[in-house]
């Protein structure tokens, strides 16, 4: 019975967290922390920290964490499934519609106006991460004295390597992680 409740809770989290990432936080808090008391606020705060440190979204992380604790691997599977199911159904429908109509002139014109905006959204996310990397804070912390030189050099080096030599981006991500850690250990 508890598993069914969990499934329904995380189904709602999945269904109503439009916009991804941080949009899910208040929802999980009301569904899992406040209403059902399945997790303490402290545990939830820790989960947000983990979500920032690891690949994977806060919603999936919370689902796995709560599910594991209450019913082991089966619980994790059920909660995660509940969390993903709404996305799965809605995205399948949208994908079907998209691939059916995307060659139509009208749809093409609308999508063409949308694509530059998507580029801007990706650029904006990139800027936020760059500032976080170089100044360890948000826009307000940007200043010459806050600049972290190691990260700045790694960013420029990574960018050049990617553009000039077309290196696998995953190598660049983990490469900067390893090289940067070694540099910080030495200095």
């Amino acid at each position: 019975m508890i598993l069914l409740q969990l499934f329904i809770s995380f189904f709602q989290v999945g269904l109503f967290s439009v916009g991804g990432g941080y949009a899910a936080i208040p929802l999980i808090q009301s569904q899992i922390v406040d209403m059902r008391g399945l997790m303490t606020l402290e545990e939830f705060t820790d989960l947000i920290t983990i979500a920032e440190m690891t690949p994977g979204s806060i919603a999936i992380n919370s689902a796995t964490f709560v599910g594991t604790r209450i019913a082991g691997p089966a619980g994790a599977a059920i909660c995660t499934l509940g969390c993903i199911l709404p996305s799965f159904i809605i995205c399948l429908i949208l994908a079907y519609v998209y691939y059916k109509y995307r060659t139509m002139t009208g749809v093409q014109t609308v999508l063409s106006a949308l694509r530059p905006a998507v580029v801007a959204l990706i650029a904006s996310a990139g800027m936020s991460i760059l500032i976080l990397a170089l100044f360890n804070g948000d826009k307000s912390s940007v200043s010459a004295q806050n600049l972290r030189w190691v990260e700045a050099v790694l960013f420029v080096a990574g960018f050049i390597v990617l553009r000039k030599f077309k290196v696998n981006p995953i190598l660049v991500i983990f490469g900067t992680g390893i090289i940067g850690t070694v540099i910080y250990l030495i200095i």
Partner: peptide, 17 residues
């Protein structure tokens, strides 16, 4: 924690590329 912080520089480079 150091690795995760510096890795962001690499992530930013990938996005900018």
């Amino acid at each position: 924690s150091v690795a995760l912080q510096v890795m962001r520089a690499g992530v930013a480079a990938v996005i900018f590329d």
